[in-house]
Structures are given as C-alpha cells and as structure tokens.
Design a protein around this nucleic acid. Structure first.
Length: 730
DNA sequence: ATTCTGAGCCAC
DNA sequence: AAACGTGGCTCAGAAT
C-alpha cells in the first residue's frame, strides 16, 4: 500500500510541469481517458480524495462502472471522477451490506427478549473482563440517547448486540429494559474494555448508569503504544494491528445515516463487531504494553482511572456570565468599528483593486500597508514585524489594537456564548488526555468527531476568562504547580544548582541570576517597586530557551541582543549548570541512537524516529528534521514528565473532591488544577488542596510548590491567605 | 455549499 | 547547515 503510493507520488512530482503544459495544449477531443487519469492523479489531491480516485479508476478499468453518457463529450474531470465514486460507493454499499448479513458469524447474537437479556447479564457477570460499546442517536452526550449496547464475553467467545427503543424496529427492547444492564455496567468486579471510553461513560450517564470497573481503553492505550499513529479510530487500527478489515459507519450507511434506522440484521453484525474488534485489540495491546512494565503500570493506574475523572469534569461544565459577555462584546465591537474606519481612511488610497480593502485579509493588507509606511513588509506577524514599528507609525499601533480586539471578540467573547448546551444550559468542553504527543491534555475538539468544533478551555485569554464564573454558592479555587517544568528538569538532570535553589525555597531564576552576575539574591529577585528585575527576566528566558531548544537567533530577538551575544549567554549559563548541560546532550544522543526518549521513570515514551536520520552534506531537509527531533527530545521529556505529575495529581484531587461535600474538579490547564468549591470552604480545605498538589507526585528529592487562588470570576483571584483575612475582617 | 490549507494568534 | 516545544480556533482564499 505504502509503496504504491510512493511510486505514484514520485511520478506525479516529476511529471507535473510537463503534464500541465500538455493539458493546456490538449483539447477535450484529443485527451485520452488514460491521459486524463494521469492528469487527475497528478493533482494535489487530499488523502481521502486520492483513495476515492483510485477506487474509481480500478472500477473503470475492470468495467464495473462507466462514464455518464451525458458528460461523455466533455473532458474527464476530477469532479466527474468523484461523482462517479458516489455511484460506485452506493453500488458497493448494497453488495457489502448483503454480504455482511449473509456472513454473520455464528457467535454474533441479537438480543430482543428481556429474559434473554437478563440471563445474558448473569452470564456476563461470571466474566472477569468484558468489552462494551454503545450505539446512539447522535454524538452529543448531553442530548442524544442510547439505541443499542454491544457486549463481548471473551471466555465463551460470544458477541451480543442489544437494540433499544429508539431503534426503528418492533423487536427492539423498550428503553426501560436498559435497567437490566445496570447491575453489570455498575459492577466493579467485572472489568470493562472500551474504545473511547469517555464517550460511552457519558452516554450511560445520560441514562443514570455509572460505568464501573473500567479496565482498558483501546484508544488511549494506542496513543501510549504509538503517539505518532495517523488515526486512532477503531476501524483504522484494526486492520493494522489485528489484521481485521471492516467498513466504517459512513462507508456502510452513508454520512448522515442514523443508527436507529439501520435494519437490525445489519446492526447486529456492525455493532457486535465493534466490541469483538475492541477485545482483540485489547489482547494485542496488553501483551505489548506488558513488555514495558513501567508503562503498563502507568497506563493502568493513571491513564485508565483518569478517564473517569475527565468524564466527570466534562459533564460538570461551565457557567458563563452572558450579560457580561454581551456588554463586553458590544464595547469591543464599538472600539473595533472606530479603529476600522480610521485604518480604512489611511489605507484605502494605497489599496489596488475594485473591492473595498478587507483589513482581515493579509494578502490585501500587506501591499497596502507597505505602501502606506513606505517600507516593504516581509509578513504581518504582530510580534516580529509589526510591534517593532509600532512607535514609528501610528497606523501600525492602530492596526495592532484592531487585531487584538477582533481576535478577542471574534474567537472568544462573541463565540463562546453561542456554544451553550441546550439541555444542560452549561458550557461543556472536551479534555483529551492523549491529545498531544507528549502526554499533555488537549482541549476543544472531539478526537473521533473532529468536524464538530467545541471550545478550548486551555487557551482562553485573560480577558475571555472573565466570562467564566463560579456557579451560585461556589467559588473557583485555582492551584498551580510553581515552576513545574523547571523542578521537573532539575529532577531529571540532577542539576545541583537548581535542586539546591528549590531545597532552599528560593526562586530558581533569581537564584541562577544571583550566581551568574555575582550579585546578592535579593538584589536580582525583585526591584524596589516589586517588579521582576532584568537579570531574573533574562535568566527565565534563558532557562526556557534551554528547555525548548531555542536557537541563538530567536533567543537574540527575545533578549534584544545579537545572536553571538545570545550564544555567549547560553554558554555561560550552561557552564554554571554542568549537569543540565550534560543531560541535554545525553538525551539527544539517546534519541539519535534509539529513536525515542523516556519520560520520568520510563512511564511513557516520546518516539522520535527522525533523530536517527543521517544527513549528507547539503541535505538541508534531512538536517532540519534531525534538528527538530533533537529539540523535541529534551523538551518532550520535560513536558511529558510534568504532564504525568499533573495527571496523577488530578486523580488524587478527584478523590479528595469525592470526600468533600460540594467539591468538584473544574478544569486543568497543564500546570494548574481548578476546583469548584462551596463558598464557605475552610482553611483546612485549602490546606488539603495544597497537600494534594505538593504530595501526589514527587520529582525525586525536588520539593513541589503550589500557589492557591480563590475567585468567583476566572482569572480575578485573590491568594487564599487574603481570602481568609478578608473574611476575618468582615 | 462544503472542504481544505496556511497565516496568524491565544494558552502553557 | 536559521528560525522555539505542545496544542486549537478563526479567517481568507482556493478548489471543487
């Protein structure tokens, strides 16, 4: 498969120019079908389009499908080929469905009788571990409902599908019969294996059933086994890892089909196969993961229980102050309008073209602005290009202000209010624990349904956070890990200078800057006015550069100096931290040798195959890949190990919330956990939060630190000490 | 109308 | 041997 694709791509790349010229010369009458195919396949086609085009070509070659006579006199186009794919897919779909039903395995069982279902649950409860899946009316876990449940009972090798009432078939059981499954789903001692468990947990929750005994999620486990996998859909993984091909729901039933409308004989084969595949994938995955005992242990004790925590966090959701959002949004709109008319007044004379200048189009703005200031701009990057020109040209200052405002209202203030859930009246985001290659959470989109865009909680700007408020009678408590990544790298590298700073409870940047400049600690920590000193700032930038693998050129820009000076600074900085320096080099050498790096305690891997590449002289492309992989090595270890700390701490925090009345986990933003707590929480409660933050996961001997903030509006907090002091004085 | 991509920018 | 690691969302523009 891969080889075929490569050959075609190579051919396409080399032949493109000649082909384009040929295509222009040729008329519709002279281009043969074969030539048309070469031309179409040489286009920049998306991966799905490419697959469709090849399917059509093959079907045409085999005489299974032909051109519509109505368009036979026109030049054969990609559009026509794709239209033919729809016809082909429809032809094949009917054949496939008939074949599926005819070949229903004997051990796939449709359950349409309550007594049989009851007996099935008794049988299932004898199993130590089963596979579970739900079919639903749609993908919104707050408004859609279950239409069927699949179960795989491995010891007897049977796979069941139980359709419920929304299903358009009289044989489906009444939805009340879902209750018969409760004792099984809620039974802690029957392990459950699912693919994308968060989804099914939420669906069962819709029906008041709490899934217990979660043992494995084949989707998240796959991320741990290979974070570079192109797709984590069950139907994409199965052929690769368990050699079992099957069609996706859309392929079989069409894009907009509803599972409730699928005939039961087909639904059985499709749904029972889901848990069957899930089970087989689980067997494969657990065998492989067990070969790496630390990873296996990490998966079972952190990533699996974390799914329950996330499902609960997501379902809790957020409360937004809509009045504030409306008022603030209008204020921003007025400001943007005023700025826009000023910008247009200046820039329109420099704009070429019939239409009115669109300020939001960089393609139009760049030439107009360049002419207006009499300087050719390379791009419109706010930080690198525009900001340095801000004081020289008023128009640029106004443009920056305009961009900032329209970004804020266009992405956050105006958009978020539209995403309220109609059923719960709250705002629910998604937290994907395997959303990043390092192990951090991603937030916003659904991994299995990327078309449906949610909202990202983790990149809300400070001004947008003001929309998020604590529910009535509650406060939001934010607890961060103080200098999490620096403590992490201190532990991983064993860097004495850093570890000592933390043991002495000193600010690491100030401590480093003090050594570096030979000045007293207090002098470089804070200025008389309480601001950060230049020495501390510089050291902070330098340390982050070390972790991120920043080049001397970028660092020079950040420190407002020359690349040589920046390099000299880094050299001197590393000289004061020899263990850190050595650790970075060792990590890069390890990556180059093995093609991966370990997170803390071998609990997780970051696979960097490019680090093993060898670049010949002048091969810049390969060199760039190697350089990138080299930067990713140390950074991945730090970011990934830090995320392990955050995840372990989240589980302990969740357990703490379970013990406290009215407490829930509200969110997480990488190095920070947020709680929802009763407004009359006690100092002991605050102490418990701090204990959870600092004691749940240790980076060796490096102590953890945490700052707590109390707020009713996200981002507008007071330190917990001040909260209680204010309370006292009232 | 729908889908995709790149530039740009928000967070840590 | 030039460009900072991990994400997600919006907009414009292009392609179909």
């Amino acid at each position: 498969m891969t080889e075929l694709k490569l050959t075609l791509n190579v051919k396409a790349a080399g032949a493109t120019d000649a082909l384009q010229a040929a295509a222009v010369r040729k008329t519709a009458a002279t281009e043969t079908l074969e030539d048309a195919w070469i031309r179409i396949l040489a286009m920049k086609n998306s991966e799905p389009d490419n697959a469709k085009l090849h399917a059509v070509k093959q079907a045409m070659d085999n005489g299974k499908i032909g051109r519509d006579p109505a368009s036979a006199n026109k030049r054969f186009s990609k559009a026509e080929a794709l239209r033919m794919y729809s016809v082909l897919a429809e032809q094949q779909r009917e054949g496939k469905l008939a074949e599926l039903v005819a070949n229903t395995p004997d051990n796939y069982v449709l359950v349409t009788d309550e007594t049989v279902l009851y007996e099935l649950t008794l049988l299932a409860m004898k199993e130590p571990i089963i596979a579970v899946d739900t079919e639903t009316t749609g993908l919104d876990v707050y408004s859609d409902v279950i239409v069927g449940v699949s179960l795989t009972l491995p010891t007897i090798d049977r796979h069941y599908y139980i359709p419920f009432e929304p299903t358009h078939d009289a044989r489906a059981l009444p939805i009340e019969a879902l209750e018969l499954l409760r004792p099984l789903i809620e039974n802690e001692s029957v392990g459950k294996v699912l693919h994308n468990a968060i989804y099914d947990i939420a669906m069962f929750r819709r029906h008041g059933i709490t899934l217990k005994g979660l043992a494995w999620d084949t989707m998240t486990a796959m991320h741990l086994l290979n974070e570079n996998e192109p797709s984590y859909k069950l139907k994409d993984l199965a052929p690769v890892y368990i050699g079992s091909e099957s069609d996706t729901f859309a392929e079989l039933f069409g894009k907009d089909a509803k599972f409730a409308e699928v005939p039961l004989d087909i639904a059985l084969v499709y749904a029972a196969k889901d848990t069957h595949l899930t089970w087989d994938l689980y067997v494969f995955q657990s065998q492989h993961l067990k070969k790496m005992p630390e990873m296996y242990e990490y998966y079972c004790t952190v990533e699996v229980p974390l799914l329950i925590v996330i499902a609960d966090l997501e379902s809790n959701g957020y409360v937004l102050d809509l009045d504030f959002a409306k008022e603030y949004g209008e204020k921003l709109r007025r400001q943007a309008e005023a700025l826009l008319s000023e910008l247009l007044a200046v820039l329109t004379p420099f704009h070429e073209g019939e239409e009115q200048l669109n300020i939001n189009s960089n393609q139009q703005l760049k030439p107009a602005l360049s002419k207006a200031i009499g300087k050719e701009l390379p791009n419109l990057d706010a930080k690198k290009t525009l900001k340095p020109l801000k004081s020289e040209f008023e128009i640029i200052a106004k443009l920056l202000e305009y961009k900032k405002i329209t970004k804020l209202s266009g992405t956050y203030i105006d958009k978020l209010p539209l995403k309220q859930n109609a059923v719960t009246k709250r705002w629910h985001s998604r937290f994907n624990p395997m959303g990043t290659v390092t192990g951090r959470f991603s937030s916003g989109k659904d991994e299995e349904d990327k078309s449906e865009q949610g909202f990202n909680v983790q990149n809300q700007p400070k001004d947008a956070r003001k929309m998020f408020v604590a529910p009535p009678g509650k406060v939001i408590i934010g607890a961060d890990f103080k200098a999490q990544e620096i403590r992490c790298v201190a532990h991983l590298s064993g860097e004495k200078v850093l570890i000592d700073a933390f043991l002495n409870e000193r600010d690491p940047y100030a401590s480093l800057a003090s050594d570096f400049h030979g000045k007293p600690y207090e002098e470089v920590y804070k200025t008389a006015e309480g601001d950060d000193t230049v020495e501390r700032k510089e050291m902070k930038v330098g340390m982050l550069a070390a972790i991120y693998g920043t080049s001397k050129y970028t660092l020079a820009e950040q420190l407002n100096t020359t690349p040589n000076e920046a390099q000299a600074f880094l050299d001197r900085m590393f000289k004061t931290m020899p263990q850190l320096d050595g650790w970075i080099k060792e990590t890069q050498e390890f990556a180059a040798k093995y093609g991966f790096v370990w997170m803390d305690g071998k609990q997780r891997k970051r696979r960097l195959p490019d680090a093993k590449l060898k670049a010949k002289w002048g091969d810049k492309d390969t060199w760039r890949k190697i350089s990138r992989a080299k930067r990713q090595g140390p950074n991945g270890r730090v970011q990934g190990s830090s995320s392990i700390q955050t995840k372990v701490t989240m589980i302990r925090a969740y357990e703490m919330c379970q013990r406290k009345e009215g407490w829930r986990l509200w969110g997480t933003v990488h190095d920070e956990l947020l709680f929802e707590a009763p407004i009359d929480f006690t100092e002991q409660d605050a102490q418990d939060v701090e204990d959870v933050m600092t004691n749940s996961y240790k980076f060796g001997d490096v102590p953890n630190g945490s700052d707590l903030e109390v707020m009713t509006i996200w981002g507008k907090g007071v330190p917990v000490s001040k909260w209680f002091a204010d309370k006292e004085s009232k």
